[in-house]
Computed example of a mutant assay.
Amino acid sequence: MKHTAQHALTLAGESVLLLAGRALYWPAQQMLVVADIHFGKAVSFRALGVPVPRGTTTQNLQALDALLAQVACRQIVFLGDFLHARAAHAPATVAAMLAWRRRHPQLLLTLVRGNHDLHAGDPSSLLAVTLVDEPYRLGPFAFCHHPDTASEAYVLAGHVHPVYHLRSGHDGLRLPCFLQGPSRLILPAFGAFTGGYAVRPALDEAVYVVADGAIFPLP
């Protein structure tokens, strides 16, 4: 099977691309959709005295830049958990995000508030992010944080941080994945330093695993 950095799907009559960069691209709207970026998660743990790696905000921003270099994009929709906790408002974290925003002033940014956003508070107004609640409707899609949000539209959501456990004998890998069902698509967590929940797809669900810069459907 040939592995590529993107996989084309038709959802609710619209052509979209699943990207190995853990995002969805909607060409008709020149839109990137990103779930669970969790800015400031590492600094939040360090504030509690837990020794965790630095540089996760920079990693997240570099990952966004890599996506923007791949596709023609005029807007990004974040499916919740943009900030991890109130500690994400630390000056260094905010400064890095503002520097990135100054490099992309033309981008329209929309945040569908998630459960962590409710505790962390809204991002700095200087980031010029439009804040909405779920479900946020656009065309045939309902942009949500929680996958079980009720909507007549096709739901694009995050929250779960889905991973798939591939097994071979005594060996195993936990890989981020997209989980596609008849009425919703759950995106993998985009942020660095995020955990994952192992999903078991139902008979009417498909799994698209991300590994080594490629995305591929499971048979």
Rank of each mutant, 00 (worst) to 15 (best):
V160K: 00
E134P: 01
A142D: 05
M97C: 13
A120F: 08
H119K: 12
H159C: 01
D133T: 10
H161T: 09
L156C: 03
A95V: 10
V160P: 02
P162E: 08
P135M: 04
P135A: 01
T130S: 13
P135C: 02
A153R: 13
L98T: 08
L127E: 15
H89N: 08
L127Y: 14
L138A: 15
L109T: 09
V160F: 02
H159W: 04
N115D: 06
H161C: 10
R137M: 13
F141I: 02
V155I: 11
P91R: 04
H146R: 11
T149Y: 00
N115F: 04
P147E: 00
E134H: 06
R103S: 12
V112A: 03
V112M: 08
A95I: 04
V155H: 01
S125I: 14
H145R: 02
W100F: 14
P123L: 02
S151F: 00
G158H: 03
A142Q: 04
R137Y: 11
A150Q: 13
P105M: 11
L109G: 11
P105V: 07
P147R: 01
V160N: 05
D122G: 09
N115V: 05
P123Y: 05
A96D: 12
T93I: 13
A90D: 15
N115M: 09
A92Q: 12
L126F: 13
C144R: 02
A92H: 08
E152I: 11
F141G: 03
H159V: 02
T110N: 05
G114V: 08
A150F: 08
L109Q: 10
T130K: 13
A157H: 06
A92N: 08
N115K: 08
L126I: 08
P140T: 05
V155Y: 03
L131S: 14
H161W: 02
L98W: 13
A142E: 02
D117N: 00
L156S: 09
A90F: 11
